[in-house]
Amino acid sequence: MRIWLLLLALMAVSFARADELRPAYLQLTEQSPGTYTVLWKVPARGEQRLALQVRFEPAPADTSEPVEGFLNGAHLQQWSLTREQGLAGTRVSIEGLPRTSTEALLRVEYLDGSSVTHRLTPAAPEVTLAAQPTLLDTAQTYLVLGIEHILLGIDHLLFVLALLLLINSTRKLILTITAFTIAHSITLSLASLGIIRIPVPPVEAVIALSIVFVAAEILRAQRGQPGITQRNPWLVAFSFGLLHGLGFAAALGEIGLPQNAVALALVFFNVGVEVGNLLFVFAFLALTALARKLAFQPGRILQKVPPYFIGSLASFWLFERVAAF
């Protein structure tokens, strides 16, 4: 039992730190043939920023002096560069990224409205830009981004996990997954298209609160007092799924949508989110089936570990996000 608690505490610290650093963001916008505006945004605390630098190889023919400053917890730099033959074949790297636990998003916007997005990580801190993307490239890019976002979104996964711990029938499982899918698809689409606009910080705080609520419902069920979540998990999944969809939209807003393929990118990002959800659900069901096959029967104390772990971590996120208002 002590080993379990120690592992969960270490996981909590890891998740909390992972949630702490936002990704860096690099945007290249084509203003005229061969001329680009560069926006470089690095996470910062106060007047201290991460030691990350952008490098282009081969170097551009001409660059302007950067305009820079701190704004809303980030350090921003903006300048222009010229490369007459375009960016195809240019290697873009983020120096210092391998020494951090964050990542960087690279977005290139072209004159015709098309765009391409790349995710740079400490393990892969550089990319060689290709020619302008096709529609197939755009679909593939946003599908992968959707899958990565949900699988790396610990708060969303904990919400789904808490629901799964309360579901005791196949019918309820199907209804719950369907309701969550419909709900987050609605708000993701409406927010991404600018039809509804809700500030991100309150949304993130209420997402944490939704996890606390479902974790408390697990404890109620263990005491023989099933609440609304166990009786009708699809209703709770739909209600809070609307909020989680707004969280997905905030992440997509940082990435941006290509102006020449807005609907295509939005659909495939949403499909990617759902694929990631289903991968997580199938992994949970496989582990559950394995535990039953091994006749594993956790004691009453061990049964309380998951809801207390989920609720405690979500409570930490709640206070942290409210304090950040």
Rank of each mutant, 00 (worst) to 15 (best):
A261H: 06
Q297W: 11
F248M: 04
A124C: 00
G96V: 05
N277E: 12
A221D: 13
S32N: 11
I255W: 02
V38S: 02
P23A: 07
I154R: 11
G194E: 02
N168A: 14
V281C: 00
E148S: 02
L166P: 02
I301D: 10
D62Y: 14
L318Q: 04
H244G: 02
Y308I: 14
E57C: 02
L164C: 07
V13F: 03
R197K: 12
I218T: 00
A324V: 05
S80H: 01
V262T: 15
V271T: 12
A237G: 02
K304Q: 15
E103D: 08
W4N: 11
T37D: 13
N277F: 06
H75F: 12
A286F: 01
E126Q: 15
V108W: 03
L302N: 09
S312Y: 10
A179P: 12
S210N: 14
T134C: 07
Q31E: 13
Y110I: 02
V144Y: 04
F316A: 07
V200Y: 02
Q259S: 14
L158D: 11
A139W: 05
L5I: 09
I182Y: 07
K41V: 09
L175K: 03
R220F: 13
G34K: 11
K304I: 06
E217G: 03
L246P: 15
V200Q: 01
L242Q: 01
S114Y: 02
S315L: 14
V273G: 11
N260G: 05
P226H: 12
G113S: 04
A221M: 12
T63Q: 11
Y142A: 13
T141P: 09
D62Q: 15
L294P: 10
H184T: 01
T128V: 15
G245D: 00
H75K: 04
H244V: 07
S185W: 00
R223T: 10
E47D: 14
Q225N: 14
A123S: 07
P199K: 08
L294E: 09
R49N: 06
L136H: 10
A124G: 06
H184R: 05
Y110S: 00
L294K: 10
E320H: 12
